[in-house]
Design a protein around this nucleic acid. Structure first.
Lengths: 241, 241
DNA sequence: AAGTGGTCTAGACCACGGT
DNA sequence: CCGTGGTCTAGACCACTTT
């Protein structure tokens, strides 16, 4: 924590950015303890209080977990479904239902105006298009169309995504060092396009919940556009601020 | 900060609760500065650092605003629309559109099972039912049905709510000292009931975005159930975590 | 007992806004 | 110039978990 740091930013912000970078680089695996406040403070050349403030912000951002008496750990990544839980309509207290991911495929296309503007790319920039299907108790309930720059994330292949346990978020973190957070979400009612209706086994034109979300690295621009169509006959899309 | 305080809670939490109570009691009006950190610390009998931590949490919770060089102020209440902004679909950067509130009326009814369970009331408990209509550029785009305990919030009258500038949130704060925050929100697609369809000038059964939200005091149970129906032909309901 | 994070304190200095 | 909030430091003690 010295020389080349941007001196305009507070020390604890520089420490936070430094630690975030090391977390994203995979320096500490899941269930592996980070060094203690005092050790980190010594490494970074700051006081223990400053190191603590950086760690506290990373906890608030969902990057780290701290447990009194145990230590500091890298927080598990959210699944590809994201933060919004799915529960029975009208019931707020209950546990979230489990959704199962099914990988449909990856293709390539060119960025339209909206996507290009949201992801700060030029029109026509090459994109990867990842398609997912979500099942609840075996029945399809949602489709995802995920768009991301094919230039920034080259060599994204279907093999890794097809694995049942794999997650796009994990792939982006391990291969590109990008930890993706949701920046904003838009909810609308839309009529299902033919393709989505077929995947969800309902008639085309059926009204469904459309969830458009932009994600990207913490403290960075969005890199991931996701258009989700969700059937909400028996489920509700829940968010807790 | 002494005697009757719950000694199990950290000092800064006790200070936070104490300050929150004084804010809700209306001790400081809008655009009136709170005492400085040092003065508050002296009042509460804690160190300046502890007072700062309490203030910082209240800022994070949206209760206070702090401006370097100017002072600490009570944050303005969000309008009755709440946190979710409304913008053009697919456009994330733009400014939120303005919605105009129209008060339709207050009536009384008994709590059904769902509402009673969510608000921790007994089945059949008396409720107030507040009805609002939201317009965007003159056209109706959303209806609200707001339910709250008629026992806890007695003497809620239509006169105060009918005032064009009034807000239910302000009323609850000024009359009952309750500062309401959104605890959770559920999104679904629902078919418009006759009454809502008529209010929105569309045919009954039309699919609309249903937003069910529970609100209540910071650090307390929910006291307000809101069922909103929103037309999203030209608008999208946006949330930013 | 030793190590971890969590709280509390005291003091110093900086950055910003108004006088 | 002063008063405000914002940052940084150093040290002490507490609560919890593990050895």
């Amino acid at each position: 924590m010295n020389a080349n740091a941007i001196s305009k930013e507070p020390l604890y912000r520089q420490a936070k950015a430094h630690l975030l970078q090391r977390v994203c680089a995979g320096e500490w695996g899941e269930s592996e303890m980070l060094p203690s406040e005092w050790d980190l403070a010594a490494e970074l050349g700051v006081s223990q209080g400053t190191a603590r403030k950086a760690l506290a912000e990373l906890v608030a951002d969902g990057v780290l977990l701290r447990l009194q008496g145990k230590g500091t750990f890298v927080a598990p990544l959210p699944g590809d479904w994201g933060g919004g839980a799915v529960v029975m309509p009208g019931v707020f207290g209950g546990p979230a239902d489990v959704l199962v991911r099914e990988f449909l495929g990856v293709s390539r296309l060119s960025a339209g105006e909206e996507v290009a503007s949201a992801l700060l790319l030029r029109r026509g920039a090459p994109l990867f298009r990842v398609r997912l299907l979500w099942r609840h108790q075996g029945l399809p309930v949602a489709t995802d169309e995920i768009l991301l720059s094919a230039e920034r994330f080259d060599d994204l292949d279907a093999r890794a995504l097809r694995a049942r346990s794999a997650s796009l978020h994990e792939l982006l973190l391990r291969r590109y060092g990008v930890r993706v957070h949701v920046h904003a979400e838009q909810f609308r009612v839309e009529h299902l396009p033919r393709e989505e209706a077929a995947l969800l086994s309902v008639e085309p034109g059926r009204a469904a919940l459309s969830v458009l979300s932009l994600s990207g690295p913490l403290m960075g621009d969005a890199v991931l556009w996701r258009q989700r169509y969700c059937l909400t006959d028996a489920l509700a899309y829940t968010v807790m601020p």
